[in-house]
Design a protein around this nucleic acid. Structure first.
Lengths: 187, 187
DNA sequence: GTTCTAGTGTGACAAACATCACAATTTTAA
DNA sequence: TTAAAATTGTGATGTTTGTCACACTAGAAC
């Protein structure tokens, strides 16, 4: 389990074994079951999560009670309600397991402590944040330029494995179309 | 001009005058005219920009030649084609002046040098990147949960000044609807 | 096995939105 | 100033998508 996190960090910023042991001491190892909530809308967000195995959905529930998938979090992804996490405010989104899931979690104080004590990790977090920003921007471009059908094909191309793991209803919610519309799309 | 950048950084990470002088030595001061391009789709992206005064649009052009506004960049905003900037690849977007614009620009090597030499700035860039990521995610939520009409009202509420500064055509392109539809929206 | 539930497909209809067309107005540039 | 270009509003029409309804299936719980 630990080796997955080390390999993941090493891809961007190589660490010595000692450095990684120090990094690891800031994380908690946690297991969750399908349907468990890691974050509940309206409650505090203590942690940020690295997904070792499993699958999560980041959900925003609108005034009408309709759920929207802001993001899926798969193996090797970092996820949280970052806005609430960084500002220590109440969650505007929920983070829930689609499958049994294993994570490393880190609190904001440990995140900041680690960043200060080990500049390599601050560099790592910066690069991760930049990549997350870029990914979100690409999703925005997809909304601006593509029809539901095209967004569906893009998703299928980018994450082919997702289709065996999540229901069409959830995919529709991620794509921003109704379940019925997704069901009628061509390819 | 310099004081605006200092105040901007100070809001997140207070700097001494010496530190700021060091920071400033990594930036270039540049002036552009309306319609000038800071970044051209398909070309190299040397710099990341801090907007002192003026207004820019970050544009993505699709295969059909239609332009989509990925982002407006106003006073105090940081903008670039970050994907191309960080990976030193060709721009997938263009950055163009809507008004005469004054910026501080920084190259990737100076960005990295500054981050390494002054940890406070790495912290600053990390916080900025996190905020950018959160902003993009909010825009995604807006696409998922809201109609064109609602997105229009949200934009009007969030950036009331924008409406005196940019054409309805550009606003429509930002909202992801046609010019005609925007023209017909209620409020 | 049987029941219960979640997931899925599809028809019918309504709402939202895009596209094309054209006119009126404002802004820009020579 | 004056002609050209850009901006905006609006009608007509077709496409896309949402919503409601119902039937079917597969897997989970008992």
């Amino acid at each position: 389990m630990e080796i997955k996190l080390k390999d993941h960090i090493d891809k961007l910023i190589p660490l010595t074994d000692d450095e990684f042991a120090f990094v690891l001491s800031h994380f908690k190892f946690e297991k969750y079951h399908k349907n468990d909530f890691l974050i509940q809308q309206g409650e505090d967000v203590d942690d940020c999560y690295y997904v070792v195995t499993g699958l999560l959905k980041l959900i925003y529930m609108d005034q009408g009670g309709k759920q929207h998938i802001v993001s899926f979090a798969m193996e090797d992804w970092w996820e949280s309600d970052f806005s609430a996490f960084f500002t220590q405010s109440k969650a505007k989104m929920s983070l829930q397991c689609i499958e049994n899931t294993v994570v490393f979690s880190i609190s904001l104080s440990d995140y900041q402590k680690l960043s200060t004590e080990l500049p390599k990790m601050e560099r790592f977090f910066l690069q991760k944040s930049n990549l997350g920003h870029i990914a979100s921007q690409n999703r925005i471009i997809s909304f601006l330029t593509s029809s539901a059908n095209e967004r569906y094909e893009q998703l299928l191309k980018q994450y082919p494995t997702l289709f065996q793991r999540v229901s069409k209803t959830l995919l529709a919610s991620y794509l921003g179309v109704s379940r019925e519309t997704l069901s009628r799309l061509s390819s």
